[in-house]
Amino acid sequence: MSTASVPVGAAALVRRRPPPAVRRQRFLVAVANHSLLIAAAIMFLAPFAFIVLTALMTNDQALSSHLWPHPFRWRNFSDVFHQAPLLRWTLNTMIYSVVATIGVVVSSVPVAYALARLRWRGRNLAFMVVLIALMLPPQVTVVPLYVMWSKLHPFGFHFIGTLWPLIIPNWLGDAFSIFLLRQFFLTIPEEYLDAARVDGCGELRILTTVVLRMAKPAIAAVALFSFLYTFNDFFLPLLYVGENPSHWVLSIGLSEFRSLRQVQWNLTMAATLLVMAPAIVLFFLAQRAFIEGVTLTGVKG
């Protein structure tokens, strides 16, 4: 856990006073560095700025070479809702993301625990297989999966055109989350588990009490990633709900937004902005969890 936190101020710590020439050089380097940072920051923010500005233009203006809205057309944001069932798409997206995320957490934690803390034959092999499943592109299995879902239809299950083919697999373990959790579980000191075992707890009990309590940051990270992944997912929804507009999620809806009703650029940018908003708001609400979560994926757990 301690290795996962970012020692923000560490770089600024200077213990001894170096000679003036070195200090001047350092000062210049710092100025140059900050100028570069500011320039880069402007470049990173510019797309956002242009999207916001366009979202406030009239369509004629969006098709012209003017950069500043004149007049500001705030109505675009409400017009978007008249042009497309944005709320419906949002609801579908939320269903997909929330239900899938819960499934990922519930199903991946025990598997990760078994892979990390239990000794059994074939454990390394199983872990290897998880890694392979994690790394192979989804396109490799997508054709038979689609066939499988569509063939359940004569039995009265209409899966294609619904969100179920997207959600159900997440309830049966997600390789990425299993991997991440396993790495974290490995860091839990054995003594805690042993103490619980001495107290007569079964493994399931240990998992639900000791491990879950200690692994909160990892679980939060897994939930966060799973949520963002499903929120952004485009390929699978395109396959499974592309044909059924009433089950479209935001990513599909947005990609079809323009062609659907010949919507203009100003409104398209307004919709784009609205779709970007949730993740960004979520980020500002839980910034620390984000940064720590991302760091967790990259630094040895």
Binding site: F44, P47, F48, F50, I51, L228, F231, N232, F234, L250, S251, L254, S255, F257, T268, M269, T272, L273, V275, M276, A279, I280, F283
Partner: peptide, 13 residues
């Protein structure tokens, strides 16, 4: 921040 922009939205932009 840009990493948070959904791919479809970012591409449209």
């Amino acid at each position: 921040l840009p990493a948070l922009a959904p791919p479809v939205a970012a591409t449209l932009g």
